[in-house]
Structure formats: structure tokens, C-alpha cells
Design a protein around this nucleic acid. Structure first.
Lengths: 181, 181
DNA sequence: GAAGGCATGTAAGCTGTTACATGATTCT
DNA sequence: AGAATCATGTAACAGCTTACATGCCTTC
């Protein structure tokens, strides 16, 4: 999904500024499967406004740039619906961490150990975050399905890492090929 | 990881042509967490050769372009190791499917049903593929850890979808707001 | 006093995808 | 006959990230 559609998605939940939209992608319910940066959001909103998908209301602020509050128009709603109805592309998943663990035997077991522990903690934070949103999602079936799937995946990943961390490190330590340092 | 490093990773397993490297990213052990297209691989290999990270051996072929077989040099190995030792970036996950399911209530329940069934089948194919590679990975602890994690995640996702598919569709069907068609 | 949050916007640059260009062989 | 596989490479284009530009307010 392009950033413009992503913005429409956030605005379908409530009016927001560009800054707030970015926050939604960092913390909100989309956070675990879509993201966007400010440098992409602002031009996307300008374009969406030109196309009549959103309206802008400027709100004067003391000492700061005007706050521009964007709202979805009916044309914007229609565009969002159209995006939902087109055949979805494949999921994109890229992980530098898995790449590095793949070559674990080239590295120090201690480093691998630290990387895994850190990742488990990150998964736990994600699970806590998604669990906390349970009430927000209640009554919105699609939103709750996606939230639950996120929990299920992160839990499975964390469990796997907890269970296989030890055996992996044992195997690495019993090898001789790993870095000296 | 940039495409150049990805190529070094494949070449660390065995010598290969650009074409074969792409196949490794479509089917091989990296497939579920890294990908690369031919249009990126060929220039990356040329650059890696210029930098002395790989060597090239051209093999004449009848009626086809010469087959260029690339091999990793010790400088290339060192570059791969360095990439493994730098702090890994965050995982990138983007899913158009989850985006669409998020807005399930805007759409026809039948469409959502089809999307979920299709995705479950895709997960099952991934699991079968990774399970089939079990023997290839035996004895390579990092590789096997990553393979197992893939299985665990896809299994959890498929299970969640199987269990929550029915309840989701029921909720959608009992709503009035969904598209008419 | 420094860091971080609030608030917008531009532009350079990187990276990668898709399409184009070419062409034989093998499978259906 | 048509599609897929093998095989390389270029180039246009898209899309996004990062850094720059500006500046106040609040928290540590």
C-alpha cells in the first residue's frame, strides 16, 4: 500500500495532522504491518488534498507552524474502499537479524545470545502493546482479527526463541570455527 | 541487508550464477526473510567483482549468453562477516492482506473468506517447503534455528486463521454495513 | 542547558522494481 | 504452438528514507 492510502486509512478512524498520522504508524493499530515516515506523509497528504480525497483545516498555533487537520471526504472513503478491494500483493518480510543468525557459526556465541534476548524482549513489548489495545478493537471484527494475529505470531516467535536459544548456543560453543576475540 | 551482501551470502554456500542466486531467493533457505530481483542482482555482482569480493569464470554456452559463475573470495568472506557483526536494523514487515482484513467490515464477507483461505494455503506451502529442508540444515545450527523459526511462525499464523476465520465471518455477516454487490 | 516532543515542509539521494532487449531450448 | 526455463544486462521510473531548514515549549 502506498503512503497516500495509508494516510486515508488513519483518517478513516479519526481526523489527524501529518504528525499524528506518523505517530499512528509508530504506535497505533497499523504499527505491526505498515509504516510510513514524515518525509513521505506530508507530500502524500498534499496530493490527497489536491485530488479531493481529504480536506484541510488550518489551526493557528502560538510560535509553531499552523496545525493542519486533515479529514477524509467521501471521495477519500471511496478510494480507501477501492484499495481494499484490489488484489493484495505478497507480504514483504525482511529481517537482518535472521540473516545474521543464519550465519551464527561465523560469530561469537555471546553475540548471538544477546541478539536473541533482545529480540525476545522486543516481541514481549509488542505483545503487551497489542494486548493493551484489546478493548479499543472490540466491536471492530477486522481490526481485532489483525490484532489477535499479531499477538499469535509474536507469541510463537518468542516461544520458539526461548525454547531453542539454549540448544543453539550449546551447538555453537562446541564448535571451533567461531570468531576468536 | 543490501543486495550485494545477499549475493555474498548465497555464494558463501556455493558458487553460482546471477540467475541461480535469484532462484535461491525465490526457493532457497533465505526465501522467507530476504528477497532480491535480477535487476538488482546483476549490477550488485558486477560491483562486487570490481571490489574484489568475488571472482568470475565465464563458461561458453551454445546459443545463450555466457554463463558467469561467481565465487566468493576471502575479501568477500570478510565483508560477509562484517555485515553479520554490525548492529541489525529492525525487521520490516508489510502486509497488504492485513491492511485489507483490518477494514473487513467495508467489504463482502465472501471476499474476506476467500482471502483468508488462500493465505492459509500459502502458509501451508511455506511450512511444507521449510520442513522438506530439515535435512539440508542439519548440522548448521544457525540455518536450522532460522528454518525452525519460520515453521513456528507460519504454523501459528495458519492456526490462528483457521480458528478465527469462522467467528470473524459470522460477525461480518451479522453486520449491515458491508458492501452490497 | 540539553534532549525530546511538537509541527511543517523540501530535496537530495539511495535502492530496488519493472520493463525492455535478445534468443535458444525444452516441456506441454 | 505456446509457455516456461535458462541466461545476461540496461534503463526508466517509483518510492521511500534521511538530512536539512526552522523554531518554540516542556521535561530532565
Amino acid at each position: 500500500m502506498d503512503v497516500k492510502t495509508l494516510c486515508l486509512a488513519v483518517l478513516s478512524q479519526r481526523d489527524a495532522t501529518g504528525y499524528e498520522i506518523r505517530k499512528q504508524f509508530a504506535e497505533g493499530p497499523f504499527a505491526h504491518f505498515q509504516k510510513a515516515s514524515l518525509g513521505a506523509i506530508y507530500p502524500a497528504l498534499t496530493k490527497a488534498a489536491e485530488e479531493g480525497l481529504v480536506t484541510v483545516t488550518a489551526e493557528a498555533q502560538d510560535g509553531r507552524p499552523d496545525k493542519k487537520i486533515y479529514s477524509l471526504t467521501s471521495a477519500g472513503s471511496a478510494a480507501l474502499l477501492r484499495a481494499c478491494e484490489t488484489a493484495p500483493g505478497d507480504d514483504q518480510y525482511r529481517s537482518d537479524l535472521l540473516f545474521q543468525i543464519f550465519f551464527a557459526c561465523l560469530q561469537h556465541p555471546e553475540r548471538i545470545s544477546r541478539l536473541i534476548d533482545k529480540r525476545i524482549a522486543e516481541y514481549e513489548a509488542q505483545i503487551a502493546n497489542l494486548t493493551a489495545k484489546e478493548e479499543t478493537c472490540a466491536g471492530q471484527p477486522g481490526m481485532d482479527f489483525v490484532r489477535g494475529l499479531g499477538c499469535a505470531i509474536y507469541s510463537a516467535a518468542a516461544d520458539y526463541m526461548r525454547q531453542n536459544r539454549g540448544p543453539l548456543l550449546e551447538k555453537l560453543r562446541s564448535e571451533t570455527r567461531h570468531a576468536a576475540e
